[in-house]
Design a protein around this nucleic acid. Sequence first.
DNA 1: CTGCGACTTGAAGCGCGGTTCAAGTCAAGG
DNA 2: CCTTGACTTGAACCGCGCTTCAAGTCGCAG
Lengths: 132, 132
Amino acid sequence: MAEALLDIGEVARRSGLAPSALRFYERKGLIEAEGRNGLRRAYRPETLDLLAMITCARDAGFTLAEIAAFVRARPADAHVRERMAAKEREVSARIAQLTRLRDSLRHAAGCEHDPLVECPDFKRALGRVPRG
Amino acid sequence: MAEALLDIGEVARRSGLAPSALRFYERKGLIEAEGRNGLRRAYRPETLDLLAMITCARDAGFTLAEIAAFVRARPADAHVRERMAAKEREVSARIAQLTRLRDSLRHAAGCEHDPLVECPDFKRALGRVPRG
DNA sequence: CTGCGACTTGAAGCGCGGTTCAAGTCAAGG
DNA sequence: CCTTGACTTGAACCGCGCTTCAAGTCGCAG
């Protein structure tokens, strides 16, 4: 099965990540090479799925350290599961916030207020009136 | 009306941002002080609304430079309006992505796969199969 | 053997979004 | 007057997420 392994260059091309980024992720414990072809890192094909998940989570605003914790998670690890559940709540909150922002942008595109920022609808859509 | 202006300290307290951040935002063109009390920056109360909007957008993943462009936008500025519309699409895409991530997390919390990352449902929920 | 080209390493550098610092300035109070 | 305390400044520093660089190593073709 050793021939099934992918060279770092191939993984880079297929994942859209730079080789330097892959090595960086390895240092951070996000991925690991299964072996080497000479000096070249050789990755299992599943690593591509893992990288897809990593970039998705990263794009979603997770830090690489957080992602590393997920990546190493095993089902037995109730502790990590709880962190996942907490993250789910975080993501939900983020979605709600982004939804408000989207609505604000949608309104702003057709609004006539001069310093757009002071449009009452725009402000209301953001829903933030802490106590200022 | 000069007495209606707020000291930087007050703005910092009410907005939840550090004074250093407010000065940083000023350098970046996001906000500006209306005047000074001695050396102290004095802000108009509306600045608090502006800051609420700024932090919202920043938390949503916009760069300060992007936000600065919005902040300076005027209704006549069709160019900026288009960028807002484009941003709205971006935000929508982000919401969709986060929704997928949330569903993945939700599933992961109860999944039995050992390296969680390799759970087929988890992967499918991420919906990323570019061509790898 | 001698290139060549794609990889290897560690270390340095970068852009972002700030914070922290030293040194200075101001208004108010004693 | 002198102190106090909150501000002022520019410059340095920080953590993150990488990229870039110099120098070295490998497999393969000719």
